[in-house]
């Protein structure tokens, strides 16, 4: 670990003479930069997906902890009695933190988007809504439904928290998938750069043989290759990241009606996360090239 940190320090410090011992190789240079750039571009999207999924899961989780709704449909003369009965039941139900009937004004506001502001609520058989807040443990929905059916037949528990749970689970999975994608992209980058490094090492077998013959240490020879590949990966990944961030920035702005897809960007300090991709790509390239170089050198006497 110490040796690797020292090697990284030497690599950052640079060595002009060591840099020059490896002949310029246009093809592997372009291949490495392109690979790092393309992978960084994909990594930005995977990161955006993961972060957006995380946000979604948190939002839905928060919603889960909020409310359930009971809808009471009853003849006008029974409405008050049934409402009171339901509130009594809820007061006695474990897991219910609080419950209250929505006022006429509140119900009117809820219906306004569909019926306009002049809705004659009294003239319509609008059900009464009861807003239920759960404790952390939640209540037994099936038990409450049975009790409501027996004691307040017009009351229906709209347990919307129950359909949100699978969505939260799906969002969590999506976030995990995004993170796995980032790991796979990192692995694929390492594999591609290892292949390019091996090709460069094979193409420069004579250079390596000469250097060993004149007494160059393995670390010196490896550093020349590692530095070149690391810098190429860093440059390629930086370009790919900038392109990826620009593409994400050009996605449609977050819109409630647009749902999940329009929220696929970064928000606030979240824009800093993609900036980690180029240095991470450089570290992956450093480790992959160093391993490939020492593997090749160990085969030589």
């Amino acid at each position: 670990m110490k040796a690797r940190a020292a090697a990284l320090g030497e690599l950052l410090a640079g060595d002009r003479s060591a840099d020059r011992i490896v002949p310029p190789t246009g093809f592997t240079a372009r291949l490495t930069s392109f690979t790092a750039g393309a992978m960084a571009f994909l990594a930005v999207f995977a990161l955006a997906l993961s972060i957006a999924s995380g946000r979604l899961a948190e939002r839905w989780s928060a919603a889960l902890a909020q409310t359930a709704t009971i809808r009471i449909s009853a003849p006008p003369e029974q409405m008050a009695a049934q409402t009171a009965k339901v509130l009594d039941i809820l007061k006695a139900t474990p897991g219910v933190a609080s419950a209250r009937a929505l006022s006429d004004d509140e119900q009117k506001k809820l219906l306004e988007p569909w019926f306009g502001p002049d809705l004659p609520l009294d003239a319509l058989p609008v059900p009464r809504l009861i807003d239920v807040r759960e404790t952390g443990d939640g209540f037994d929905a099936d038990g409450l439904k049975n009790r409501l059916a027996a004691e307040a037949p017009g009351a229906v528990l709209d347990d919307h928290t129950r359909w949100r749970r699978p969505l939260v689970a799906a969002a969590d999975r999506l976030r995990l998938l995004g993170l796995v994608s980032i790991l796979l992209i990192g692995g694929a980058t390492a594999a591609m750069i290892t292949l390019a490094a091996n090709a460069a090492l094979s193409a420069n077998a004579q250079v390596i043989r000469v250097l060993r013959l004149i007494g160059a240490r393995d670390a010196y020879i490896a550093r020349a290759f590692v530095r070149r590949f690391t810098l190429r990966a860093l440059a390629g990944a930086a370009a790919g990241t900038v392109a990826g961030m620009a593409a994400v920035a050009l996605l449609p702005a977050t819109d409630e009606a647009g749902g999940f897809l329009t929220g696929l960007g970064f928000q606030g300090l979240g824009w800093l996360w993609p900036l980690l991709i180029p240095p991470l790509a450089a570290i992956v390239s450093f480790a992959a090239t160093r391993a490939a170089a020492f593997h090749t050198l160990r085969r030589l006497t």
């Binding site: 060993r212 007494g215 240490r217 393995d218 050198l297």
Partner: peptide, 10 residues
């Protein structure tokens, strides 16, 4: 060691 061989070759 490999580093010693390199030193020796110098």
């Amino acid at each position: 060691s490999r580093d010693d061989v390199a030193a020796m070759r110098r």
